[in-house]
């Protein structure tokens, strides 16, 4: 085969693969784009515009200001930040030492505990929802931030992810640290955690997106707008204030999605490193 045909072959191959990727991206991004387009359309055009992507008249100002003023959107977002941060911090405090113990310490119960962690991965959150709800109700803790966060403090996925990451950490460095006089806790804090930044970033992205977007659990344990996280807030907003004002609703949705995109862009490089290094995919 000549060099020219080789090059055309390669061109065709790359065109085909790019076409596939573009198709996939379009499929995933289209609802998102539609959300953004609806958020800048006047109310009259939301259903009449058909598939015409360009709005005839920009209504972004009205929609966004309505979303911001007619509902306590900032309050919802603040609740979201508080809940996500609380969950993430406790998850890390539990999962990093847990992952270290499973990866680097040898104790008799280790295989059993690791088996339980894997088993825990298969238990969906809905299964434990009812008992936890009853317990919270009996303790009079419904309608609190604590109630929204409680079921997620212990992340078996986090323990598993950090265990995979720490498995590849050189044993000799841990030996050196023990000889130097580090306690196990200090090894975790001073040696292991600084090396785990990519894994922490990856886990943070997983954790924050899933709890920022979670509607199921907040819906069960809170009824007040005071503690509502963004998706729950959006629901309350739709029911009470706007009724069928989809433009404003989509503007609100766009606003609450924005922080997630920012977080991901910020952590993207570390996230990809973390995923590739832990072998979780």
């Amino acid at each position: 085969m000549s060099r020219a045909t080789l090059r055309t072959d390669r061109l065709i191959g790359s065109a085909v693969s790019h076409a596939f990727l573009l198709l996939g991206a379009a499929f995933i991004l289209l609802p998102f784009v539609w959300m953004l387009l609806t958020s800048i359309r006047p109310a009259s055009e939301v259903f009449t515009a058909g598939f015409n992507p360009i709005p005839s008249r920009l209504a972004a100002g009205i929609n966004y200001s309505e979303a911001l003023t007619k509902s306590p959107l900032l309050q919802y977002m603040l609740n979201g930040v508080f809940v996500c941060a609380g969950i993430l911090i406790i998850q890390l405090l539990v999962a990093i030492p847990g992952g270290y113990a499973l990866a680097k310490l040898s104790f008799r119960a280790q295989p059993v505990i690791f088996g339980l962690v894997l088993f825990g991965l298969t238990v969906p959150v809905q299964v434990t929802a009812l008992p936890i709800y009853i317990a919270l109700a009996k303790l009079n803790l419904l309608n609190t931030y604590f109630a929204i966060m409680l079921p997620f403090f212990l992340s078996v996925f986090g323990i598993f992810l950090f265990r995979q990451f720490f498995k590849s950490f050189p044993q000799e460095i841990i030996h050196a640290a023990r000889l130097d006089g580090f306690t196990e806790l200090e090894i975790i804090i001073r040696i292991i955690t600084p090396s785990a930044v990519p894994a922490i970033a990856a886990f943070a992205v997983f954790s924050i997106t899933s709890h920022w977007n979670d509607l199921y659990w907040p819906l069960i344990v809170t009824t007040s707008a005071d503690h509502a996280t963004p998706p729950l807030g959006m629901m309350i907003f739709r029911d009470q204030e706007t009724g069928s004002n989809y433009g404003a609703l989509m503007a609100g949705a766009a606003i609450i999605t924005a922080p997630l995109i920012l977080v991901f862009l910020f952590a993207q490089r570390q996230f990809v490193r973390g995923i590739t290094m832990t072998g979780v995919k």
Binding site: P170, I173, H175, A176, R190
Partner: peptide, 12 residues
């Protein structure tokens, strides 16, 4: 004190 094959320096 021990010196390791991989040196085992604290990377950060």
């Amino acid at each position: 004190a021990m010196v390791f094959q991989s040196y085992a320096l604290y990377p950060h």
